[in-house]
Design a binder for these strands. Structure first.
Lengths: 352, 352
DNA sequence: GTGAAAGCGCTAACAA
DNA sequence: TTGTTAGCGCTTTCAC
């Protein structure tokens, strides 16, 4: 592993002064040369580069930040890292940012306690990161202005704010399409497994999906029934319980739209526990196109998770280079599988 | 949101000098008082605290790091953030570290390119983080010594190195137990869906699980058949293909042990695609106890993912406080579900 | 094109 | 107990 450098040798690492001495120039010139600034003679630059190379010199990130105000790291705030969707988005963004030389600082702010901790340090955050990506978290106006004021680019995923780059999907339309699919199959008693705003954290996705669901019903002349909308906080176990309540209704739904695949999996578990057959007695559609959706033949709304992360990272990078904020909307599409198929394929554990 | 402080007001943030002036003491005293060091009179400390509070002062992290060498951030290196296991571990560790005031810097090093990028900056890393948690990644001796030399605590998850804290499970024993379960069910042609070391990255888990698998066979007097061991790189889609090869064998296995639940899900998909009935014609056991394992009734080896992350974070914190390295081993246990049950429960999509 | 020097905001001896 | 004073390593005017 030659590239790891020499071990056990000099404990003290090279500083810019060492390089300057070795290259026989001033530290100012070293700084310029290494950062590719103009006004450095080619020969000088070459000498500096060589000196730096042979000394295995790398600028101390904290010293540069202190002097220049740049941190070379971007922060990512997520409600809950352990959810599939978020881990995919973060992974994709990280990959691009790493290539561009940026570190990724992670902030989970799913609970009020998290949120409080992060928000109370909100101003501080601006000192630790050059840009901030908020995944399905909408900043308050005050927070947004605080961040933009420091001219740190912010990009939000899942919501659109003024003066801030964003990447979104049309959650409303997507949810509407999912619901229409169910309607087209002849269902009218369609349950919704979603989430109430639990935290003070603004988390706009559930509302949008709910709106799409209701719009579809309305357009089809179906009166929404409040008792068909249950909350499961985007958790699989919660969805099992919530679906149980749905199935216990005097007039239970014949179909369910879950706002995430993970919750849809919970619906499947609940249905099985009560020997409710899917899709004959209960059709179910999810949202995400989780890697495992095809394993259980789940019909779902596919969204380009990885691309969302990549685009967010790009927008952050653009912002870092001074570009104006941009808004990007990415497409979704319905993937029809066995959980809603009129004539389904084979079952996963078909003989159980 | 009162705790976010005053917006739009002073653009310049308070420095330690401002606090010193306001409290009528020297910056040194401010520094001491704020960090809770001894040798500060109670009254003085109170005054400083109040001044800092009213000025909304927070020490610039980069300035402190530069002066003191502390970064208040811990790095986490993971092969692949997008995998369930890793996202759970990172999430759990982050939660604890955040509470303790540490930021988490994320490094994906699943590919050789990633690895190269990180390793070539390995020494640098020591300047950005106070401690490093390596998730299922074993450092080379040289890397380890470089990190320990800087006296930055390192903790490895999944492997045990000298002079470095670690948290592990007994992968070998766990895999052996899984295989024994299959043997006890009467199987002898047992496939293994695992992973070859693909990267130069040392990733010791697959070898350990393979060893356990083989040991079980051997102990039962079953000769391991090389063609029953296939590689799927811990990816669900790859596992589908790999299982296909297994099922195409002249003498296909009647059972499969997959080294991860995600791969086991792939096995299920492949089986279904060929109308191979689970568990009658193919018993399958996975590894992880992924949240969705119960959705598809997958028998699996449960490991305490969240606890692994938490313990790793604790060990890192301990190391930061000067404690000696410790090794922790966490338990696993087999969870028997429908995919190996002699008399299975209802199917997920039982009527499809 | 290059260098000198003044910080960036904080910590840590060393004095007092 | 508190203050003074060097730095930490780098960037960036401003001269030359």
């Amino acid at each position: 592993m030659a590239e790891t450098g020499s071990y056990g040798g000099e404990v003290r690492r090279a500083t810019i002064d060492d390089v300057a001495a070795a290259a026989n120039v001033s530290v100012a010139t070293v700084s310029r040369a290494l950062r590719g600034l103009p006004n450095v003679a080619d020969g000088t630059r070459r000498r500096v580069l060589e000196a730096a190379e042979s000394l295995a010199y790398r600028a101390d990130p904290h010293a540069s930040r202190l002097a220049a105000g740049r941190t070379m790291t971007v922060g990512m705030g997520v409600p809950l890292l352990a959810r599939w969707y978020f881990s995919q988005v973060v992974a994709a963004a990280e990959a691009l940012l790493a290539v561009e030389g940026y570190d990724v600082l992670l902030f989970a702010m799913g609970t009020d306690a998290d949120r409080h901790r992060v928000v109370s340090n909100w101003a501080d955050l601006g000192r630790r990161v050059d840009a901030l990506i908020l995944v399905d978290l909408v900043p308050t106006a005050a927070e947004a202005s605080e961040l933009t004021r420091r001219s740190a680019p912010v990009v939000t995923i899942g919501s659109r704010c003024e003066g801030i780059s964003s990447v979104v999907i049309d959650n409303r339309a997507a949810a509407q399409a999912a619901t229409e699919h169910l309607l087209a199959l002849g269902h009218s008693a369609i349950g919704l497994v979603g989430s109430q705003p639990l935290h003070t954290v603004s988390f706009p996705v559930p509302q949008a999906r709910r709106a799409g669901y209701r719009a579809a019903l309305r357009a089809a002349g179906v009166a929404p029934r409040a008792e068909l909308e249950v909350s499961a906080n985007f958790s699989m176990p919660d969805a099992v319980a919530a679906t149980g309540r749905l199935l216990d209704l005097p007039e239970p739904p014949t179909a369910v739209f879950a706002m995430s695949d993970e919750m849809a999996f919970g619906v499947l578990v609940a249905a099985r526990a009560r020997s409710v057959r899917v899709p004959e007695e209960l059709a179910v559609v999810g949202f995400d196109d989780h890697e495992l959706a095809r394993v259980v033949e789940l019909t779902t709304v596919a969204q380009p998770v990885a691309q969302i992360g990549v685009v967010a990272a790009q927008l952050a990078l653009e912002g870092l280079q001074g570009s104006e904020p941009r808004h990007v909307e990415l497409p979704t599409h319905l993937v029809v599988r066995g959980s809603t198929a009129p004539r389904p394929a084979a079952a996963v554990l078909d003989s159980l």
